[in-house]
Amino acid sequence: MDVRIEQVGTTGEELVLIRCREITEEVREIESFVKSRQGSLSGVSDKQQYEVAVTDVCYIESVDGKTFLYTNDRVYETSSRIYELEELLRPKHFLRISKPMLVNLMKIQSIQPAFNGRFLALLSSGEKAIISRNYVKALKEALKG
């Protein structure tokens, strides 16, 4: 796929156009990347495509090779992989707290101890997410800035 960048000046409309023969997974990933840079993620819920504001997402989980976005009241499936979202959403205060899960630090209400050196994050949605022992150090560093 060829990549072209064209300057439109200060008055022109900014647009990312993907011209493709077929809408493949790769195309969806590029779309998802561009949208996430703008503060939203593409997600499918009840067979409908939605734009989900990154700030509304509580956590992102990978289950059986599929990636899901969880907001306070809905779940969306996204075509992006969790490792891609981890890189992409780091500046938006998302942090990996276990192998299959990224959490929005702005959506954690409190942290509680769990069994065997793990911690439990209580989210604004009322859900609880396990902070794996291996990711506690990264969490401390992220919070200290």
Partner: peptide, 22 residues
């Protein structure tokens, strides 16, 4: 458990500061 509990409290305080800042 008490040690982890104290650490969890510290993390929650750090988290509150982080959220106020960002």
């Amino acid at each position: 458990w008490l040690k982890d509990s104290a650490e969890a409290k510290r993390l929650t305080l750090d988290l509150e500061k982080f959220q106020q800042l960002h």
